[in-house]
Computed example of a mutant assay.
Amino acid sequence: MFIRAYLRASTDEQDAGRARTALEKFASDQNKVIACEYLENARGATADRPELLRLLKDARKGDVLLVESIDRLSRLPVEDWQKLKAAIDSKGLRIVALDLPTSHQGIQDTKGDEFTSRMLGAINSMLVEMMAAIARKDYEQRRERQAQGIEKAKAAGKYQGRPVNADLHKRVTELLEAGLGIRATARHADCSSTTVLRIRDAARQ
């Protein structure tokens, strides 16, 4: 059994590896070892996540996709989530989330009778879908509250926008001009590939 752990944080300021200890402990409690780790800073509401795409490319049938929670995997709109879920299913990956006990059977070697296994699989699939929908709803509500807060701050003349990290922008631009690729630039600048792309695109405008 090959266990692939996916760790994600939404911004460069957050620690994407924060959940590593919890994931490793969970695997150890099941007498398993995480064989490969995919870590990135990217919003769960975007489908453009290089490390998740690399995980899907590397995956083989029967592998386990281990996450802290379903919202680390997706806060996507329903259409994008369905595409991602179809890609996961087509690879034969088993989603195991720490906060979804019905998924834990996917990391265990023991097999019950076929009927029980299929029933648990169906229940788990339904709950994964439900938690993905909840994660998206939570994202939309937080965005709405954030927009309302910004509008209120603008009306009061207090909104200044998000500060730009000038040093990071300069570093990324220099690395790209030196001929480094997106992932290499992200690694040397200590930021996400998404941030590199955003800075590159902004410089082209």
Rank of each mutant, 00 (worst) to 15 (best):
M1N: 11
R4N: 08
L7A: 11
L7P: 04
T11P: 04
Q14P: 06
D15L: 10
R20I: 01
L23K: 11
Q30A: 14
N31G: 07
V33C: 07
A35E: 14
R43K: 10
R43I: 00
A45W: 04
E51W: 02
E51Q: 15
E51R: 15
R54F: 05
L55N: 03
L55S: 03
L56E: 08
K57M: 03
V67W: 09
S69I: 02
I70A: 01
R72Q: 10
S74Q: 07
R75A: 00
L76V: 04
P77R: 06
V78D: 09
V78M: 11
D80M: 02
D80L: 11
K83C: 04
K85Q: 13
A87M: 10
K91R: 15
L93G: 02
L100T: 05
T102P: 12
S103T: 15
K111N: 02
T116D: 10
S117H: 14
S117E: 13
I123G: 00
N124G: 02
M126A: 13
E129V: 01
A133T: 02
I134M: 13
I134W: 11
A135V: 10
R136W: 06
R136C: 06
R142T: 08
A147M: 12
I150G: 00
E151P: 01
K152W: 03
K152I: 06
K154A: 01
Y159N: 01
Y159D: 01
Q160P: 03
Q160C: 06
G161E: 09
G161P: 07
R162M: 11
N165I: 10
H169S: 09
L175Q: 04
E177W: 03
L180K: 15
L180N: 14
G181H: 08
G181N: 11
I182S: 03
I182M: 12
A189M: 11
S192N: 04
V196T: 08
V196N: 02
D201G: 02
A202V: 02
